[in-house]
Design a binder for these strands. Structure first.
Lengths: 150, 150
DNA sequence: TTGCTCCTCACGTCACGTGAGGTGGC
DNA sequence: TTGCTCCTCACGTCACGTGAGGTGGC
């Protein structure tokens, strides 16, 4: 959608934010990118749906992440007919869902690791037991009068 | 909110649904329980938000579960100002979230079990190794001419 | 100066709930 | 018959987006 900025300027060692979150666009450009009226963007900010950065002169500056969110809002309002209160709730739930997905991913990894550990411990246990059963038999030497019993 | 039906009639052996899902209330009663206008309930059904059962004579019958859902819709629309399209999306996401919560719960249990298995296998391995080192020493009997060496 | 920004206010449209009005079956 | 149900249609209210109108700083 919007070209990613290569962080060639990262070399300078200055404090440069990651490109996706860099506040780049003034409201008219952001509105054009999002396909919305500039006034609509101001309304969305007042309703707490987007939080563009501000310049020293109090002018709004939108990042690629803001534009992305504007597209999401547009889909929800225009395609699905959801009002702004609904969008607000959905954005919040979407965040929760993302957290849950991450938790599931992390747990799955831990489970794989724990199962591997169990498998390996069981294998080591088995070989240890084998040693208990075989080694003693070999190492137990018999007295001559016991020879025919075995 | 609404008294649960004891399933004393379950004894009869008839096919009786679980009380929470039993269609009990005609629309006027359901509307009263939910604190809504009966016409509102009809609108919600047309919008696919609630699906009351129907009698043979095509009359709506609401279950306790339906009433519960109506209360949820009421909270979302009146307290949060969300429109019906938003409620629809939220109900859908709520279902997904519940599934994720269940998945997390299940994974946690499996993880506890896998870790316990690993711990126990490790413990058995340790005791098996101990046996390898101790038992052979005890079971190795010495010939008389070896006695003083050891 | 020009063209942007900032803001507030007003209007048109649309969604939704309420209510009326007319029908039919326990 | 009474009181419910079923339905459709119309109206009032409110949310939201658009646009105008006036201001100020690069």
């Amino acid at each position: 959608m919007v070209a990613k900025r290569e962080d060639a300027d990262g070399r300078r060692g200055a404090r440069v934010e990651r490109s996706e979150e860099r506040a780049l666009y003034i409201i008219s450009v952001a509105a054009e990118l999002a396909g919305m009226h500039p006034q609509t963007l101001r309304i969305y900010e007042r309703r707490g749906l987007v939080r563009p950065a501000r310049t020293a002169g109090n002018t709004r500056r939108y990042s690629d992440r803001d534009i992305e969110r504007l597209h999401m809002i547009q889909r929800l309002t225009q395609q699905e007919g959801i009002n702004l209160a609904g969008v607000r709730a959905i954005v919040e739930m979407e965040r929760e869902l993302e957290e849950m997905r991450q938790a599931v991913r992390r747990l799955r990894e831990e489970l794989v690791r724990a199962r591997k550990a169990a498998r390996e411990a069981a294998a080591r246990e088995a070989s240890a037991r084998e040693a208990v059963e075989i080694v003693p038999l070999r190492s137990v030497r018999l007295f001559p009068w016991e020879q025919e019993v075995r």
